[in-house]
């Protein structure tokens, strides 16, 4: 599973946390301050993650 972090850094994870929410918890991101896409499509925290998925975590910049 490939994770694109808010700072554009890429992390390849050997184990799969199961859901988007579990992944966010693991990397210490507040779900309210990010949106997450799975293979390009926006997904909620309860969405499942598979081994071959590409997950992108996008920070919601404050303001604007």
């Amino acid at each position: 599973m490939k994770v694109i972090l808010p700072d554009q850094g890429i992390r390849v994870m050997e184990h799969c946390p199961g859901t988007v929410g579990a992944l966010l918890h693991e990397i210490g991101a507040n779900p309210l301050e990010v949106i997450v896409s799975r293979n390009g499509k926006l997904v909620p925290e309860e969405a499942t993650i598979g081994r071959d998925d590409e997950i992108r975590i996008i920070r919601i910049a404050h303001g604007g």
Binding site: V43, P44, A47
Partner: peptide
């Protein structure tokens, strides 16, 4: 993965 309450498409 959860689905929409209105139409059963994948939820965002």
């Amino acid at each position: 993965s959860p689905v929409c309450a209105c139409c059963a498409e994948p939820a965002v």
